[in-house]
Design a protein around this nucleic acid. Sequence first.
DNA 1: CTTCAAAGTGCATTATACAGCTCTTTTTTA
DNA 2: TAAAAAAGAGCTGTATAATGCACTTTGAAG
Lengths: 72, 72
Amino acid sequence: MHFEELIKIIKERRNALQVTQESLAQLSGVGLRTLKQFESGKGNPTLQTLQKIADILGMEVSLKLKNVARNK
Amino acid sequence: MHFEELIKIIKERRNALQVTQESLAQLSGVGLRTLKQFESGKGNPTLQTLQKIADILGMEVSLKLKNVARNK
DNA sequence: CTTCAAAGTGCATTATACAGCTCTTTTTTA
DNA sequence: TAAAAAAGAGCTGTATAATGCACTTTGAAG
């Protein structure tokens, strides 16, 4: 999952939950500005920040093995 | 996955691949100091940094739904 | 034990993430 | 299409992540 993909997931999840950036910012304890920066693709959040955001959205940051370059 | 868990996974994966911190630092383009900080639990890497590290280890950062608090 | 490699730490500097405030742009809805 | 809400951006301190260098600690191998 590259950057844009992660952003997309966060945005979609937030929309699905009908939460505004403002609410999410407050609930997660992350600054509104920071969240806006991130969602608009201008940011490079720290792991902590990403975790706070994901947490409120009922998600979690994880590490998984990449698809071993089998075919393709 | 909380912080310690992510660290644990990185360390284990690095060991499994028989890669030293120094090698991983060079390969990933992340400063050796930064990697050391992170692995020793003293850091709060940016998403970019974490991605660089994970990438070389054949892993990727991802977001997944948390286990909905069903039972337990 | 002694040695050597790997991992961890103190210190200092530079780059940049975080944050708030204000304003603009875009999207939604009435 | 006008008004309101939500999202995005400029400006700007403050905090801290990233980095290098030198030194210490730990661990494994002889």
